[in-house]
């Protein structure tokens, strides 16, 4: 049919058909382009989600590990400080019920029992206190932190300077506990690893920001290593900060001490 046409018209048909072919080709190309871009985007989104899940798993693992370690420590404490001493009490009580015992011995053993019991009481009080300081619940975060500082100060290993200003009710009780544990862990770190001589702790509260600064002049460490090391409590501290939606900053270098800052936006309390 087309062959029979005069030439110019044949050319027009050719051009139109070619243009049509190009248009359809472009259309298909665009659709394919969007289709594959979409696939790629979804793939990256999926990867991101997987990464997040992996991170959550790691967090969970760390939490469980910490819990197990804590249990081990409590068991050890109970065994060392209470069970063994109660054994002594039980042994001494056995002496008391023997028939041929002098009044003098009775007094001596009685005194011994009283002494050991007193120390058991003291130990159990201490263990309970370590688990959850009653001050925090009864008198709030400020008092609990001050008490903690006083305890560290009383050990007389460090010079400690602290300045705590915290109006009640800024944080929820859960977040107060997080905050307290963070400070506790920071002290633990300094005591266990740093060989520091001075600690400065300050907690300041402005209209919309609660900021905690903690500095020691110990031997320091490499930040990257500390974050991955399970033994150091840094990952735990960071996790707690993350849980309360606070910003966590850690600066340290070998032989240069350590500085930690935690910033909490007050308006994100929920």
């Amino acid at each position: 049919m087309v062959e029979a046409l005069p030439n110019p018209e044949k050319e027009v048909v050719k051009i139109i058909l070619l243009a049509l072919a190009i248009l359809i080709f472009m259309g298909v190309a665009i659709v394919l382009f969007f289709y594959f871009s979409r696939k790629k985007i979804i793939k990256t989104q999926l990867e991101k989600a997987h990464l997040e899940i992996a991170y959550q798993k790691e967090l969970l693992q760390a939490t469980i590990l910490t819990q197990e370690e804590e249990r081990k420590r409590i068991a050890q404490d109970l065994h060392d400080a209470i069970s063994s001493k109660l054994n002594v009490v039980s042994l001494n009580a056995n002496f008391l019920i023997e028939k041929d015992i002098t009044l003098e011995d009775t007094h001596r053993i009685g005194e011994g029992i009283q002494k050991v019991t007193k120390s058991v009481l003291e130990s159990s009080r201490r263990i309970a206190h370590d688990l959850l300081p009653p001050t925090l619940e009864k008198f709030g975060l400020k008092a609990a932190l001050e008490e903690l500082c006083e305890e560290v100060d009383a050990a007389q290993r460090f010079q400690i300077q602290y300045n705590i200003s915290y109006p009640e009710g800024v944080l929820s009780s859960t977040n107060e506990l997080h905050f307290f544990r963070i400070v506790q862990e920071l002290f633990n770190n300094t005591i266990k690893h740093s060989e520091a001589k001075a600690i400065v702790l300050s907690l300041r509260c402005s209209e919309n920001l609660l900021s905690l600064q903690y500095t020691d002049d110990g031997k320091g460490f490499e930040v990257v290593k500390a974050k991955t090391a399970k033994g150091l409590g840094m990952s735990g501290i960071e996790n707690r900060a993350l849980l309360m939606n606070a910003e966590f900053m850690l600066e340290s270098a070998p032989e240069a001490g350590m500085r930690v800052e935690i910033k909490y936006q007050r308006n994100n309390e929920h």
Partner: peptide
């Protein structure tokens, strides 16, 4: 089509049909 890059909307196939059919 661009909007459908990140979220799954309705009428995806019909949209492709419209694109090719209308342009040609």
């Amino acid at each position: 089509l661009y909007r459908n890059l990140t979220e799954r909307g309705n009428f995806y196939l019909v949209n492709i049909g419209f694109l090719i059919y209308f342009s040609s």
